[in-house]
């Protein structure tokens, strides 16, 4: 296995130019004297870039004086952290027990089919990312999905298709 630092050294130089480090520095400054704050730092950094680019992880490791392997280890351990860019609409499909019992699999199939992507992937136009997530805690409305900050409950495959189709149409109109 390659070391993540070596593998990306060339790309890093290229990528670094496009990354705004000012906001990142502000976050690092805020947590400078708080030990054990790596997770909080990563959470706030992800808010800025919507994912955690490898260059940024290395930059954080450097500034926080933590080994890059450890930063990478934490970033890959928790499901909240994403190492790849995501679409404008983040579909989080609940995979809780109640949703499973009430047919979340069929919802996943319908969405996969409608968007032509598999779970974990992003559409080519960067509009939608489809992710399965742990229980969202709205079990009485199962099956449930969350798109960005909005929750949609009592889904049927048709209803789920309609929701994303309307979003797609809305986006096309804007263009």
């Amino acid at each position: 296995m390659n070391c993540c630092k070596g593998e990306h050294s060339n790309k890093s130089k290229l990528g670094m130019e496009n990354i705004d480090f000012k906001k990142l520095d502000l976050i690092l400054e805020k947590y400078r004297d708080i030990s054990g704050s790596l997770i909080s730092v990563l959470q706030e950094v992800q808010e800025i870039y919507s994912y955690l680019p490898m260059e940024v992880l290395n930059y954080i490791a450097d500034k926080m004086k933590i080994k890059p392997a450890k930063v990478h280890g934490v970033a890959t351990f928790y499901t909240q952290f994403r190492l790849k860019p995501v679409g404008k609409y983040m579909i989080m499909l609940c995979q809780g027990t109640a949703c499973h019992v009430n047919g979340s699999k069929a919802i996943e199939e319908a969405l996969s089919d409608e968007l032509n992507i598999k779970e974990g992937e992003t559409t080519e136009d960067n509009l939608f990312t489809l992710n399965n997530v742990a229980c969202l805690g709205c079990c009485s409305l199962s099956p449930v999905m969350m798109i960005n900050d909005e929750t949609y409950g009592k889904l049927t495959p048709e209803k789920a298709r309609k929701i994303v189709r309307e979003m797609k149409e809305k986006e096309q109109k804007v263009v």
Partner: peptide, 22 residues
Amino acid sequence: AGAGAFVCGEETALIASLEGER
């Protein structure tokens, strides 16, 4: 705020997470 790991419901794992570890 946790970052999404079921195992962090376990006491010692939760503490590790509080300390910024896996």
